[in-house]
Design a protein around this nucleic acid. Structure first.
Length: 303
RNA sequence: GGGGAGAUACCAAAGCGGCCAACUGGGGCAGACUGUAAAUCUGCUGGCUGAUGCCUUCGUAGGUUCGAAUCCUGCUCUCCCCA
């Protein structure tokens, strides 16, 4: 029997995942599935550091720029799309690369997330208004009434979490917690997790350089064109929201650029927090190709 | 040269005799996270300590006081106004 392997390239932003993934994909003669929650939007290229046309020409990439910011997108949809592509790729390949920095998206593919109905935007909007009107305490009380089980374990300071639970509960007439099984979905492929990291100082340099080159590459214009859609979730993204403040004269361009760098560093840190928790990740420097190849071979032969 | 304002921790900025190791914001670090996840949320952030506590801090050198980041004096530096 042939095992199938999903080789995951994870790590903080600007560490060098894209290039690394291309090299390993070429080495293994396979393709890449992008696992980045913002690179899926075709309107946001400069600010999300999508692979360049040159990079895309070298190895086939999936789930890059295939969606519009005007469409709803989330981890569950990503799971669906990625699994479909994997089913396809695994028919003629034993290994597929998945590279990206969105930990939850990777988790959705490897572990699966529970099936929960999608929420009617109107319900979401109404609850959002209720939160704005009554504040955190208001929605906390509602959650206690609607789903005491979830209330107990929820992060009650996090409005997004509470709102999510209320949305689902209201939408379905069932408590949100009743949908949460925590069970892993059956997957026929094995994940091989590669983490890429470099010294923090170096990472910060990379981030600063990348942000500067995004600005030089036209990020301001890209963001200006998207400004009318700033309310969309897709645009609640580092690199855009800071420029929106600049467009609204809330700060200078230099200040906005500095904030993009700050926020990108913070994002990178959160990514590391997530990936470090994944204990079966093996960490490498982004130039340790040979070490990774032998690690992958070794791991595969042991499975 | 004359007059005025100010020097606080990585940065900004409160504090103006004891409740101050010092509000708050930023940054940094650590963490949480099952459909917004580049999102959202939490903790810590002078040193040593498990806790209690101890030690060294608010430009600098002295002084007043039971007690000073807070009052007084000298010095250094910064900024503003008039020459």
């Amino acid at each position: 029997m042939h095992f199938k392997y999903l080789i995951i390239i994870a790590g903080p932003t600007a560490v060098g995942k894209t290039d690394f993934a291309i090299r390993i994909a070429k080495h293994l003669g396979t393709e890449i599935i992008n696992a980045d929650s913002r690179q899926v939007y075709r309107e946001m290229k400069t600010g999300t550091a999508v692979p360049s046309p040159f990079q895309l020409a070298q190895v086939r990439h999936h789930l890059v720029g295939h969606r519009s910011i005007h469409q709803q997108y989330n981890a569950s949809l990503f799971e669906l799309e990625a699994i479909e592509i994997l089913d396809n790729l695994f028919t003629h390949s034993n290994a597929v690369i998945m590279a990206g920095g969105s930990g939850m998206y990777i988790k959705a593919v490897c572990h699966g997330i529970d099936d929960i109905p999608s929420v009617d935007p109107e319900i979401r909007e109404r609850l959002q208004q209720e939160y704005l009107g009554n504040g955190l305490a208001g929605i906390q009380h509602r959650l206690l009434a609607v789903d005491p089980v979830y209330y107990k374990k929820a992060d009650l300071n996090n409005p997004n979490r509470i709102l999510k639970a209320l949305e689902i509960s209201e939408m379905t007439g069932r408590p949100y917690s009743s949908f949460l099984t925590g069970n892993a979905k059956e997957r026929y492929f094995h994940p091989v997790r590669i983490g890429l990291d470099i010294p923090r100082e170096k990472l910060h340099e990379n981030i600063n350089r990348r942000v500067d080159s995004m600005i030089a590459g036209g990020l301001v214009d890209e963001a200006r064109n998207l400004y009318p859609y700033r309310g969309l979730n897709a645009l609640n993204t580092v690199g855009y929201k800071e420029l929106f403040d600049y467009f609204e004269n809330k700060c200078s361009l230099d200040e906005a650029v500095k904030k993009i760098k700050d926020h990108t560093r913070q994002y990178a840190r959160r990514q590391l927090t997530w990936f470090r928790k994944q204990k079966d990740t093996k960490w490498f420097l982004p130039d340790e190709d040979e070490l990774v190849y032998s690690y992958v071979n070794e791991t595969i032969s042991r499975l």
